[in-house]
Design a protein around this nucleic acid. Structure first.
Lengths: 333, 333
DNA sequence: CTGAAAGCGCTAACAC
DNA sequence: GTGTTAGCGCTTTCAG
C-alpha cells in the first residue's frame, strides 16, 4: 500500500555514496569493485529493500531471466497425461541453479495456440522448450522468433535443435516382444499422425512385422488420450476378432485399450497381449500392470533445457540428441 | 537467424512518414489519429513485421501484460489433484479477452516457494491469484508486493481480497447428510490444519455433530492427497472399528479412504458411509461413486480473476466473495 | 577501480 | 490531430 515508489538504483548509489555504475557492478557481481564500495552498496540495498527493475534491465540486456515451456495441447490434456508433469519437472531441473525462471504455457481449448505464440513472440521469455507439437506450422512459427528454441521430439524442420527418443527402434522392440510371446495377429493403436512420435512408432511396428514376414496393416489411429485409446481399440478389436496382441503407442491409450478389450469380453494378457509406451505411472497403476517401452520425459526435457541453456550462453549444442529406450516387462505382455 | 535487429517504433514511424508518437498512438489504439496516418502506420507495421518491445513498454507503463497464478504446492500435487487444472482453467477464462496472459507458477519440490516469490516480486507480472496457500507467511509475503493480489481461500490476513466457499456450512451439510442416513459414529479426515479450508471444514463437521448432540472427536488430519487420505482413514478406522461414516475433506482423500476401508474389509457404502468434498472428476470415477459437496475451483478462480482485473483497472472489488456449496448425492452415502 | 554519459525502445505530457 | 521532448531504470562503453 505504501505509495512511495520502489527504490531505484540511483537511490542505492546515493545511499552508498557511490555512482550508479558502481552500484550496478556490485549488484550484478561484475568483477572490478573495491571492498568498501561493494559493502556500502550491499548495505544500502538491504536497507532500502531494493529490487532491480526487470523491465529496465531487460531493455538494455535483452534478457528477461525466464524461459518458457510451450505445450501446444489443451490444459485438459496436459493435466491428464503424466507425460507432461514429468517433462516440466525435467525442464525445471535443467534451470534449477541458473537463476532463470521456467514458465509453463499451454493451449487454450477455444483460442488454441495463438496466445502462446503471441506470448513467446512478445519476448516475455529468453527462449523456449517445445513439447508435444503437432504438424510443422507451430514449430515454424516458434522458430521464426529471434530467441533460441529447443524441441522435444523431431520438429521435422531442418536446422532446429531437438532431443528425441529413437521411436522406430523402440516400437520395433515392443513389437518383437509381442512376436516372441507368440502373438500371431498383432494390431497397433498409433499416436496422432501429425506427430513424429506417432508416425515413427508406427513405422517401427511395421518394420518389425515386415522383418518377421508378417503384415502390419491392423492399424487404428489414436490421439494419446485414454478415451482415444479406448475407442480405437474397440473399433479395431471388434472388426478383427483374431487380433491377439496390441502395440499401443502410449500407456494412457493402452489403459483405454484394456478397458475396451474388457468390454468386448477379452482378458489381458490371456486373450490379448498389450505393450504400451512411456513407462509412466499409469503402467504401474493399471490392472493388469503394463509391459511398456521406457520413455523419460523428464530426461528429454532436462536435456532440452541444457541445450537451451547452452544456446543462451552463445554455444550451439549438438543436435539432435537421441535417447534410447528399453522394454519394461510387466503383466500385460 | 537474420541478425539485423528487430524493427523499432522509430523504423515504423519513419516508414509511415509520421512521428514516433503518432505511430505509438495507432498501435495502442489511443483515440485521436487521422485515417491516412493510421493506415500508413498499419502498413508499415505489417511490412516491417514490427512487434512492440515489451520491456521498453513495461518500463514506462509499469505494466507487463501478464498475471500469474501462484500455487505454493509441489508440481507433483498440482498435477495430481483435479482441483488445480480446473482452477487454472477458471483463471484463464477471466482474462480471456483482456489481452493479459495468465502464467502458472508452482513450488519446486526442493527449492520450495522461494523462486515463486522471487519471480512475483521481480515484477514479471502485473498481479497474482494465489491458490492453495498454507499458513500466513506466504500470503503476507505475496501481499507485501506492490502489485495486486487476490486469494482463493481465506488468507487469514485482514485487508487481503479473497474468494472462498462457505466451508463451515458445507461441511455441516455433509455431516448432517450422514446423520440423516442413520450414521451413529462419524469420523472425519480433515485437510491440513494450516489451511483455512482444512480448519473450517473441521469446524463445520463439529458444529453439525454438536447440534445433534453428538461428539465429534474422531478426527484424523490429512493433506489433501490420495495417499494421505488412505493413511489417515486406515489409522482412524483400525483404531475405531465402530465408525460407520466418514466425512472426508476432499474427493481425492475420500478415494484414498475408500481404498483403506477395503483393505480393512469394510465396504462402502454398506459398512461405511463416505461423503467427500469437491465434486471433482474423481467423485464420478471412483468406485463406488462419491457423494460429495460441490466445490467449483473454476468459478472460484474465475471470480478471483475478475476481482484481480478490477484491481488492475483501479477499482476495489467487493471482498470477500463467498460461494455456496450443495450436496451431490451418489453411491458412497 | 570508479564516474560520467549515452542510450535500450517506448509512452505521455505538452505544445502547436 | 500531430510532433517534440522528457524521461522510465538500468547497463555499459569510455575516460580517467
Amino acid at each position: 500500500m505504501s505509495e512511495r515508489s520502489a527504490p531505484t538504483l540511483d537511490d542505492v548509489a546515493r545511499a552508498a555514496g557511490v555512482s550508479r555504475a558502481t552500484a550496478s557492478r556490485v549488484i550484478n557481481g561484475v568483477v572490478p569493485v573495491s571492498k568498501p564500495a561493494s559493502e556500502a552498496v550491499r548495505r544500502a540495498v538491504a536497507m532500502l529493500g531494493y529490487r532491480p527493475n526487470v523491465a529496465a534491465r531487460a531493455l538494455v540486456t535483452r534478457r528477461v531471466g525466464a524461459v518458457v515451456v510451450l505445450v501446444p495441447e489443451t490444459e485438459e490434456r496436459v493435466f491428464s497425461d503424466p507425460f507432461f508433469p514429468s517433462a516440466y519437472h525435467g525442464a525445471l531441473e535443467a534451470f534449477r541453479h541458473s537463476g532463470i525462471h521456467v514458465l509453463l504455457s499451454m493451449a487454450h481449448p477455444h483460442d488454441g495456440v495463438d496466445p502462446m505464440l503471441q506470448f513467446f513472440q512478445s519476448d516475455h521469455s529468453d527462449g523456449a522448450i517445445v513439447i508435444s507439437h503437432h504438424g510443422q506450422d507451430f514449430a515454424r512459427a516458434v522458430a521464426a522468433s529471434s530467441r533460441p528454441v529447443v524441441f522435444v521430439g523431431n520438429p521435422g524442420v531442418p536446422g532446429l535443435a531437438y532431443v528425441d527418443v529413437d521411436h522406430v527402434k523402440a516400437a520395433a522392440t515392443a513389437t518383437r516382444h509381442l512376436l516372441d510371446r507368440g502373438a500371431r495377429t498383432i494390431g497397433t493403436i498409433t499416436g496422432p499422425m501429425d506427430m513424429s512420435a506417432g508416425v515413427e512408432r508406427l513405422r517401427g511396428f511395421q518394420q518389425a512385422l515386415a522383418a518377421a514376414g508378417r503384415s502390419g496393416h491392423l492399424i487404428a489411429e489414436g490421439d494419446f488420450t485414454f478415451a482415444g485409446g479406448d475407442e480405437a481399440a474397440y473399433g479395431l478389436l471388434s472388426h478383427h476378432s483374431d487380433i491377439d496382441a496390441l502395440f499401443v503407442a502410449s500407456d494412457l491409450m493402452a489403459s483405454g485399450a484394456i478397458r475396451a478389450a474388457e468390454r468386448l469380453g477379452r482378458r489381458v494378457p490371456d486373450d490379448l497381449l498389450v505393450v504400451g509406451f512411456d513407462d509412466s505411472v499409469i503402467a504401474r497403476q493399471s490392472i493388469p500392470t503394463l509391459t511398456t517401452m521406457e520413455n523419460r520425459p523428464d530426461v528429454l526435457a532436462r536435456t532440452a533445457g541444457q541445450m537451451l541453456l547452452a544456446k543462451l550462453g552463445g554455444h550451439e549444442p549438438e543436435s539432435p540428441v537421441i535417447l534410447d529406450s528399453r522394454l519394461v516387462r510387466r503383466e500385460s505382455a
